[in-house]
Design a protein around this nucleic acid. Structure first.
Lengths: 197, 197
DNA sequence: AGATAACCATACCGGTCGGTATACTCACAG
DNA sequence: CTGTGAGTATACCGACCGGTATGGTTATCT
């Protein structure tokens, strides 16, 4: 199979040392407390710098939010690809289910759900520059499932990929907002059944 | 089968006329723009009253948020039950899938996803009184699926109910944050396959 | 040597936030 | 007749918001 995985989100900008510290701090705070709940002054303080540097490096809070989401996407996608690489191509359903293993690793200490869904909750309906980043991450996940299914020789990869993506998103929501601890096990079981055709 | 559907969320408080107008207005604004994005002054203005009355009736913004979510849960649950009532008990998979019909009706003009997931995004990690309301709504949906499955005589209703719930939550996320227009069709197809197991 | 980029410190801007205070009108029930 | 609860109107509070202005110190590169 010549199908390749979807192109991962890249973090093109090389930041200055303080800029890097700001991006890391902002990511931590935005995810832990929400975007509107975190002021630029707090980010500057916790990064050991001042608002001035934030605006010198990023120009606006909105732009910093975009940096946060793009980095988050890149990090998560790297985890997924790493988990896929642990399973040789051609191992079929087992390799597809590795995406859920990646999710388990990723969510082990993330208690505030999907950063992109959370960002959507705060900016949907506006022209905030984060909106396309959110959409792109969801599209990437769907295309990832589809691409792996193609590689593993499954029929109807588009349809099946969309269905697995639903289980993936549902698992995050019920595990976090729903506090259902065994959500991932249910998702894996349902995915295995769908893959068994 | 003697299994009954889970008890629906009730809106116990009978409000004064202006209080009712405030609750309706707050619900519309909180859902459309998010909780933190909407100030109490704006709610008062659009309801044709003043902040004073908000605090006389509800005591705090947080309490008004709880009213918003409880009413939203009650409204949605009524829609689901109405759709279930259109299908006579004993029609098996068809009746289970009616929940997805209800969702289609409900989401037809709702462009900002699940109100409870959105609220979670803004308040998770705090002691905000909305948190238990969010959890309760997710639990209700899972128990609804399970109860209908029991009524329709499916084996393993707990497990299957959790799996269908994942598809339900995933459909909302991918349809809204993911802009995937056919998400509900995929969810219904996947649900049908799991039910055919 | 001079320029430039990176950074720090501090003060300031107009605006909005949730919440409170005061004082008034009106309908209705004892 | 006299409360009492519901509602209106407006002013105010301290705190915080995103963003800007000014001025200064380093280190590096040409």
């Amino acid at each position: 199979m010549t199908s390749t995985l979807p192109e991962a989100t890249t973090v093109d900008d090389v930041l200055t040392p303080v800029g890097e510290r700001l991006a890391v701090t902002a990511s931590r705070l935005f995810y832990a407390r929400g975007i509107r709940a975190v002021g630029v002054e707090l980010i500057a303080e916790e990064a050991g710098t001042t608002k001035k540097t934030i605006y010198d490096r990023f120009g606006s809070k909105d732009a910093l939010v975009v940096v946060y989401l793009r980095r988050r996407a890149a990090d998560w996608q790297a985890v997924v690809v790493a988990h896929l690489d642990e399973h040789p191509a051609g191992t079929g359903a087992e390799r597809v289910l590795a995406v859920f293993d990646a999710l388990e690793t990723w969510l082990a200490r993330q208690w505030r759900g999907c950063a992109f869904v959370n960002a959507y909750a705060e900016v949907a309906g506006t022209d905030h520059p984060a909106m396309p980043v959110v959409r792109a991450e969801k599209l990437w996940m769907r295309e990832l499932f589809t691409a792996v299914l193609v590689q593993e020789g499954f029929d109807d990869a588009d349809r099946l990929g969309s269905q697995l993506h639903l289980l993936y998103e549902g698992a995050i929501v019920t595990l976090t907002a729903g506090s259902q601890g065994d959500a991932l096990a249910h998702a894996r079981a349902a995915a295995a059944r769908l893959l068994a055709g």
